[in-house]
Design a protein around this nucleic acid. Structure first.
Lengths: 217, 217
DNA sequence: CGAGCGTTTGAACAGCGTCAAAACAAGTGG
DNA sequence: CCACTTGTTTTGACGCTGTTCAAACGCTCG
């Protein structure tokens, strides 16, 4: 995907100042995406780093056997697509209609060369991502379905700072993130609801009732 | 663990120049550890970063339910224990008798403040670790026992640049790394040997015979 | 109102975990 | 040099959890 093409069809906003990290605002622009649009593609040169303005984004990796691993979900305020190497290691797709900020990597690197503080912020972003992934590895390593889904809901709830959580992603997306099938995700949520650990006013809305039970699950 | 205590009992070598990354040599020292010695402990302040001189190290994380996740194995030349945050997020233990280099983080940070190239090297190290973990996540996500063990053997073989691989770690260590039980690891290796995909001259030595089959497994 | 996708639910199956015991290797002390 | 101990690896039998395949259900949006 070339950004110029996207720009034409998506009516971009140019010349914005994007806050990549606290105290690191860099010129960039924003684009709109519809659900399931590709924002960038695996193995493509990583020209930009991104930040979700509104909406929700998933980063995905397609395996040779057709299976899909979702590396993570990105919600408003989250930075994604920051690479050290030349190319992207995952693809990124809009889950719902989104606005996504673009900051040119070269611009960022030019700033980091002169400004040690900016360079440290980039390192911090990569490091935070590493820490998130380490936590996720613990989930994937040795937890059963209930523990995985419970931890997932708690994380979303913490991010939203609310007991009510909107799920922009499908059961299949959640499954591909947690290493479960969509059926198992659905069954686990159903069981939580029957046990009054959560309420499910609709398929895409969860109210956490007993966070202790979710953590222990 | 305080380093002074360790120094006393382990006869340290002081004042060495440790090559943390290509073109980044920093004063430090080395210590010896016996099998199962702790090198650093989770949640402890991360005062040093480390490099394996010889031997093998595992980084571990203990879960509340008693399960253990092994984040990774570190062989001669590998850097480990590099944190951005204040504390270590994993523990590190010697698997076999080891020599491990210590470089004070403060010394490293002082260099990075003045030298943008050094700062970038630290970012590169964290980023490489992130890439490794992303690969590992794919393994833990949706692969069966044979695929996991196969990928693990291939990775060791690539690192050693040899079809014959020494396994310093136990079946249990491998299992806690791959999200399997030690019995499943043992059975999978046994099946590979029966299928002539590998040879097992001894429990801790593997000869890769059919790498294609291992990758496809 | 109907079409299409996402979700739920069911039933049968399989892979891996659990528990248990035996085989094996390596080190220790007699 | 052998008997004994201790820890690791292998092997077996069984059960459970999650997958697979299939069908019904219910939103949402033409």
């Amino acid at each position: 995907m070339s950004v110029d093409q996207t720009a034409v069809r998506s009516n971009p906003t140019q010349g914005k100042l994007i806050v990549v990290a606290p105290g690191l605002a860099v010129p960039g622009f924003t684009l709109r995406f519809e659900a399931n649009d590709e924002i960038f593609v695996e193995d493509e040169p990583a020209e930009f780093i991104h930040k979700v303005v509104f909406g929700a984004v998933r980063t995905t990796h397609l395996l040779s056997d057709g299976h899909r691993q979702i590396g993570g979900f990105h919600l408003p305020g989250d930075v994604f697509g920051l690479e050290y190497g030349k190319n992207h290691r995952f693809s990124a797709e809009a889950i719902v209609p989104c606005e996504v900020a673009f900051v040119a990597r070269r611009a960022l690197e030019r700033i980091a060369e002169r400004d040690g503080d900016a360079a440290r912020q980039l390192w911090a972003l990569t490091s935070r991502e590493l820490a998130n992934l380490q936590d996720h590895m613990l989930t994937l390593g040795r937890r059963n379905a209930a523990e995985r889904v419970g931890a997932f809901l708690l994380k979303l709830s913490r991010h939203a700072a609310s007991a009510t959580v909107e799920l922009p992603m499908s059961r299949g997306d959640i499954g591909d993130h947690l290493g479960l099938t969509l059926e198992t995700v659905s069954r686990t949520l159903g069981q939580f609801a029957r046990d009054k650990v959560i309420a499910l006013p609709s398929a895409r809305r969860v109210v956490l009732r007993d966070t202790t039970a979710l953590a222990a699950a």
